[in-house]
Design a protein around this nucleic acid. Structure first.
Lengths: 193, 193
DNA sequence: ACCTGAACACCGTTCAAGT
DNA sequence: ACCTGAACACCGTTCAAGT
């Protein structure tokens, strides 16, 4: 019985819905062990969520500087991250984003990409928060759809009905990136020293 | 004992943290009634969350067309909504955004503002989803900060440390709006008939 | 040392009995 | 009709006893 085994079992058991809804008892049953055995590998249910978050975020790469302009690298990273987290829409990353070392790695990646793109550290921080908000918000919208079985954003009438999640996400992401570019364009061109 | 009384008690008891963490038992104690009495007014704990969401969203106005250009009206509505929901960062609006008639009212308001701004229904739907994502994401970031006591976005290093939530939100919101305007600008100017 | 059963201190909600 | 106590079917986790 290993940690990855437990994480995988939790993922399978949640079936893409609210991770929080699976109980330690059900997880133990799935693995065929007594409940308390889990606590030899995981300190708490809360910590388990952190492990799951790390697990799904681990494969997401931070593109290196030679992989295109900063917009393209941001887009790639955010798309990958969204897709990875799409495995567990009800992850409640809310509560664990700050504890996850993988989430921190990606946040740092975004910051350095933005810095390389010409943003000051200050602007980069603001911009990365905006990008973070977009991905979190989109995941929430998807979580609603997955868990309730409703189409993506029913309240937005029929227009969104036939749109894929990718389309929705890309539109929002592109809008933010476009806005960030506009911010950059207003500044005098950066000087290299 | 009235429904608003129950909602207010829930708000007070949660103290701005995760609403889900308060128990029906604690809520009943706060109101000085037996637990089961609550069920004469609220069908379930889940429904209570919906009532709280409606309650905090009710005062948020949809600006009328004569209150400035569409960007300004969107900004005003979103700012108001963010502030209203800031009362209960841990509202888990995730689960109830679709059930709340007040959330639906605001979503419709955003759609009609965008339509008036020159977006096709299709574009307006995409744009409103993007705006929805931004506010949801920002609220999540704030919820993390409130509940964990950490500064807003600790992983973004010191740059964000001294920024108010309003600054963060406005930056993200402005970026999206800027991006949406760019989308509009690329189109031929709309014709009135 | 590692494992785990029983127990503790909770939950939300059903249901039947009270007035 | 309206109200509510007791009970049901769960929780996560502690803790002490097992090997």
């Amino acid at each position: 019985l290993t940690e990855p085994q437990i994480v995988e079992a939790a993922l399978e058991l949640s079936g893409g819905a609210w991770l929080d809804d699976i109980s330690m008892r059900a997880l133990a049953a799935q693995l065929g062990v007594p409940v308390m055995t889990l606590y030899n590998y995981v300190p708490s249910k809360d910590a388990l969520h952190g492990l799951v978050l790390d697990h799904v975020l681990r494969p997401v790469r931070v593109p290196s500087p030679d992989e295109g302009p900063w917009e393209e690298r941001i887009r790639q990273l955010e798309r990958d991250a969204r897709q990875a987290m799409g495995r567990v829409p009800g992850l409640l990353l809310i509560r664990h984003g700050l504890e996850s070392s993988e989430a921190a790695r990606l946040a740092d990646g975004v910051l350095s990409i933005l810095a390389g793109g010409g943003f000051t550290p200050d602007e980069a921080a603001l911009a990365s928060a905006a990008l973070y908000a977009v991905i979190l918000g989109q995941l929430e919208i998807e979580a609603i759809a997955t868990v309730t079985g409703a189409p993506v954003e029913a309240s937005f009438e029929t227009a969104t009905l036939n749109r894929s999640r990718e389309e929705l996400f890309d539109f929002g992401l592109d809008a933010v990136i476009e806005g960030l570019k506009a911010t950059l364009a207003k500044k005098p061109p950066r000087r290299r020293r």
